[in-house]
Design a protein around this nucleic acid. Structure first.
Length: 652
RNA sequence: GUCCCCGUAGUUCAACUGGAUAGAACGUUGGCCUCCGAAGCCGAAGGUUAGAGGUUCGAAUCCUCUCGGGGAUACCA
């Protein structure tokens, strides 16, 4: 039962015939922000004040008089300037919990109008190892897919792999010139990623050498400007600002030179690298050449690609399997390759794409720079692939909504892409960039693959599991909790807890904010963490086990639920708001709404647990009632976590 | 230069998208295990929501400006 929905309906009925859009105003009924204001609050009267020309307080009073709600709530409370506070009847609360607990969906309804969603997430580059930067897109996208599906939408998940781009040219070049055959034989993927990093390093070295004179000149110019602005700065506010800007420009330019020199030194201090850099001059162009040959169907490069792909994919598959992430499709860039040429021809013929400076562009109103769909050298770009992807999805899936779970830095690209898609006839699809903040290190700098020394994702997962093992399976702790676990069980538990720590740390932040990847912090098993919630679940499982009940529906329906204690009542209310939490996740696509709910529920349970003895309750009836509350909480936590892609264990 | 995002307790984050006295966690700190698992519970301290104006019944949220941080900016993805 959609409790909030029902309350809104009642308000809409009361408003009907009085104001123009009763439904819209009824939306302003929501769970109370503060328990002092009851269970639900309706902030409806205030915005109507002007419209009706009556005092908000008076409106609230009249509204309450028209409201037919006493079957659900105690008499509503009206407070200045016009707040309406609702408190549910205890017997209503009890019966709602009871009917939710025997339902496998825990009473959560489904959408009235089922939409088709295509969600694009994870999308790693197969040529380089997955790293921490990929976790956000993967975890957020997976969770959104699960929630949308659970609420009744049709969801098509697609992993838009980077399997056809410049990176592959680099790997091919590396393989042709630098491969260590024995290493490749022993561990092909490791060797390929070594080759990738090597080529990458040499390219950035050569770029550094080339850009050094320009960097020096930039410093000179900035310094010159600095001394100019310095003279004028005294007393003049605008000039002072310029002086400040110039100072910063000099600092930045100097820092840039330092970075350049670092890159240069790293190669030049290594005789072998240095020699390679000399032998393979203009490596970027050469690597690009390999990419072009691949795209043109060169047999040798194509054969290498076909040989590498399964290796890279199975490596990825391993990570996904471990994280319990699945996709309906994994259509990478290569999948769309054959569609690009015809697409661009159609766009040109229709006059939508126009030549400019040798490239072919779609000029999008409102953007300074056009969107390039073909480079001057004839190659296609990722915008081209993205358009082809939209076209393909329209043809095969007819989506109502398309979500791109991608780094916020690509915001402008997507704005442009969506605008372009509208101009070529896909305006009916609701396309949204589900942006998320950058994954940074402790200094707040983004993690980068280019630096070479990035920790691989599987290493991080191992690390998290390892720490979970140390904390959860600490022998002293296990003894204190009187837990005898086999080594196998201990491993299972720490795997579940460790992976959950990583996923949860990511999901519990508002997705738009930057996120500091600090393994030490996220495996702290205190506070707002997955482990806290999983621990609540384990305690509940233990109570049910000790009570020797099997929580079947038959068992649950013959229990009379009493909510005499405030802690019991608060817990019941919390349980009923599970559905609200899920719907609010869809409002802007924030899985953090669900983590916040689950954490609040787990805390509420901990209070209840402390204040209300279950197994040692005063009467058999009370014992049964509290057992039912435990069971309802456990089921809600388990289902909620599962929608985040997080598992539970009965003992930990 | 232009455009976009951000600035909330010492720290990491919330605040139901304009609602009531801005909430949690970590850290600091005081209590609670002869009692269902103390990874827990109950309490305390900690805030001019970067700053200044404005909009209205009401602003962390919307508008303008200032300061500070990050990002994007035609042939990488």
């Amino acid at each position: 039962m959609k409790l909030t929905e029902t309350l809104r309906d009642r308000f809409a009925q009361a408003l009907d015939g009085w104001v123009d859009q009763p439904q819209e105003y009824a939306q302003r009924v929501a769970p109370a922000r503060d328990p002092r204001f009851g269970d639900y609050q309706a902030n409806i009267a205030m915005p109507l004040e002007k419209k009706l020309g009556i005092k908000a307080l008076e409106i609230a009073n009249q509204l309450v008089a028209r409201l037919k709600i006493d079957d659900l709530c105690l008499p509503p409370e009206v407070l200045p300037p016009g707040f309406i506070n609702l408190r549910l009847r205890p017997e209503v609360l009890a019966s709602l919990v009871q009917s939710a607990v025997v339902d496998e969906r825990l009473g959560v309804g489904q959408v009235a109008q089922r939409l088709t969603y295509v969600i694009d997430y994870s999308s790693p580059n197969v040529a380089k190892p997955m790293h921490v930067g990929h976790i956000r897109s993967t975890v957020i996208g997976d969770s959104l897919a699960r929630i949308l599906r659970f609420l009744g939408h049709r969801v098509i998940s697609d992993n838009h792999l980077g399997d056809w781009g410049t990176q592959f040219g680099m790997v091919i070049y590396g393989y042709k010139h630098f491969v260590d055959a024995a290493a490749f034989e022993a561990a092909p993927v490791a060797e390929l990623s070594r080759l990738y990093r090597l080529v990458q390093q040499l390219i950035s070295y050569q770029a550094a050498v080339q850009s050094r004179p320009a960097a020096l000149e930039l410093i000179a110019r900035a310094t010159e400007k600095l001394s100019m602005t310095q003279e004028r700065a005294a007393g003049n506010k605008k000039a002072e600002k310029e002086f400040k800007a110039a100072t910063r420009a000099v600092e930045e330019a100097e820092q840039a030179l330092i970075d350049i020199d670092k890159k240069i030194a790293r190669v030049q201090s290594d005789p072998l690298l240095n020699q390679l850099a000399i032998q393979h001059s203009e490596l970027e162009t050469r690597a690009q050449g390999e990419t072009v040959k691949l795209h043109q169907g060169d047999p040798e490069n194509l054969a290498l690609w076909e040989r590498f792909m399964p290796l890279c994919l199975s490596e990825l598959e391993q990570v996904y399997r471990r994280l319990s992430i699945t996709f309906d499709y994994q259509y990478g860039e290569s999948f769309y390759h054959a569609m690009l040429e015809p697409l661009v021809e159609r766009l040109t013929a229709a006059g939508l794409a126009k030549p400019s400076d040798g490239a072919l562009c779609i000029f999008v109103p409102g953007f300074d720079a056009p969107m390039l769909v073909r480079k001057a050298d004839g190659a296609f770009l990722y915008a081209t692939t993205d358009l082809a992807t939209i076209e393909y999805r329209q043809e095969h899936f007819q989506p109502d909504v398309m979500l791109y779970v991608v780094d916020h830095r690509q915001g402008e690209h997507f704005n442009k892409l969506f605008a372009a898609a509208r101009t070529i006839g896909y305006g009916h699809i609701d396309m949204q960039h589900i942006a998320f903040g950058t994954v940074t290190d402790k200094e707040g700098k983004p993690y980068k693959t280019r630096e070479g020394s990035v920790m691989g994702l599987d290493y991080l997962l191992d690390e998290a599991v390892d720490r979970a093992y140390q904390v959860v399976c600490d022998p002293e702790r296990l003894q204190r909790a009187n837990l005898q676990m086999s080594e196998v069980e201990q491993r299972t538990v720490s795997e579940t807890v460790g992976l959950a720590a990583i996923k949860y740390a990511d999901l519990c932040h508002n997705r738009t904010s930057d996120y500091v990847f600090d393994l030490n912090q996220m495996v702290q098993l205190e506070g707002n963490t997955a482990a806290y919630i999983q621990y609540s679940y384990a305690r509940i499982a233990n109570i049910l086990k000790n009570a020797e009940v099997s929580p079947t529906n038959a068992w649950a329906s013959q229990i009379g639920l009493t909510l005499a204690e405030p802690a019991e009542r608060d817990l019941a209310l919390n349980l009923l708001q599970f559905e609200d939490a899920l719907w609010s996740c869809l409002d802007g696509y924030y899985p953090s709404q669900l983590t916040a709910y689950l954490y609040a529920l787990a805390r509420q349970f901990a209070s209840f647990y402390d204040l209300c003895p279950v197994l040692k309750a005063d009467t058999a009836e009370l014992r049964a009632s509290r057992l039912l509350l435990c069971h309802a909480t456990g089921s809600t936590l388990k289902l909620g976590l599962s929608l985040l892609g997080i598992g539970v264990v009965d003992r930990m």
